[in-house]
């Protein structure tokens, strides 16, 4: 079985677990909607202001809720599952890459679900194609970073707070690129530098995931 075929099989398994538990769609997503509503209520009834800050709030909610998505119980493989993968002689890189990519796919679903809600609540229209590119690239970055942090903090008693302090600051380049690409298109400027930043961050994280697969497997 080739490397990518093994990765596809593990991703399919991870997504199947998510489909059965519906933890992200059924629990995290409604919580994110409630947070967006709370933000709107806290800002007040200034419709113009709400419209202007809508996209920024969207990305902040995506960033913060990525911690919940990464740390969801259905996304953390048990020790028995990890031992089984080792017994099956699955390449550690397959496990780590698949964990990162499946987290990225789930993040993308979350982003897509949250986008129309934000548009509706904040009376805001994206009006640009840049979202088609930025959404999957941000999801990929968050998925890769999240899966790395997830494995590093596995089984620690203070895992939840530790993962948050490592994921949120680490993913700021993604937030900066996402918000600035939107601003650039709004003012008719090119978004290529921001897409290159997203690409560079994702490339760096991708290399880290593959290069550190061995040590991660030993955790």
């Amino acid at each position: 079985m080739t490397f990518w075929r093994q990765v596809r099989t593990v991703i399919a398994n991870n997504l199947r677990v998510e489909r059965r538990t519906l933890e992200v769609v059924g629990v995290t997503f409604p919580f994110a909607v409630a947070t967006l509503i709370a933000f709107g209520l806290a800002v007040g009834i200034d419709a113009a202001l709400l419209e202007r800050i809508g996209p920024a709030l969207y990305w902040v909610v995506v960033l913060i809720f990525s911690v919940l998505i990464i740390l969801r119980s259905s996304g953390t493989g048990s020790a028995a599952q990890r031992d089984l993968m080792k017994l099956l002689a699955v390449d550690p890189a397959v496990t780590t890459v698949a964990a990162g990519l499946s987290a990225a796919l789930i993040m993308l679903v979350f982003e897509i679900l949250l986008l129309p809600v934000t548009m509706l609540l904040f009376n805001w229209t994206p009006g640009t194609w840049s979202w088609v590119v930025t959404l999957p690239m941000v999801a990929l970055g968050l998925g890769l970073l999240g899966s790395l942090v997830n494995t590093v903090t596995t089984s620690l008693s203070s895992r939840t707070s530790l993962a948050a302090i490592l994921i949120v600051p680490g993913s700021i380049p993604l937030l900066v690129a996402a918000t600035n690409s939107l601003e650039a298109t709004t003012y008719g400027q090119g978004i290529l530098p921001w897409l290159l930043l997203l690409l560079a961050v994702n490339l760096g994280l991708g290399i880290a995931v593959v290069a550190l697969a061995g040590p991660i497997d030993d955790l």
Partner: peptide, 30 residues
């Protein structure tokens, strides 16, 4: 600060060294 917190949260020295080595490399991207 998170890196140092990760070290403090891991009691076993070998486990601590491995976890923090991975995090030390990722954090350098920043």
């Amino acid at each position: 600060l998170g890196y140092l917190a990760l070290r403090r949260a891991t009691p076993d020295p070998i486990d601590r060294a491995r976890r923090s080595a991975i995090m030390g490399i990722i954090a350098a991207l920043q």
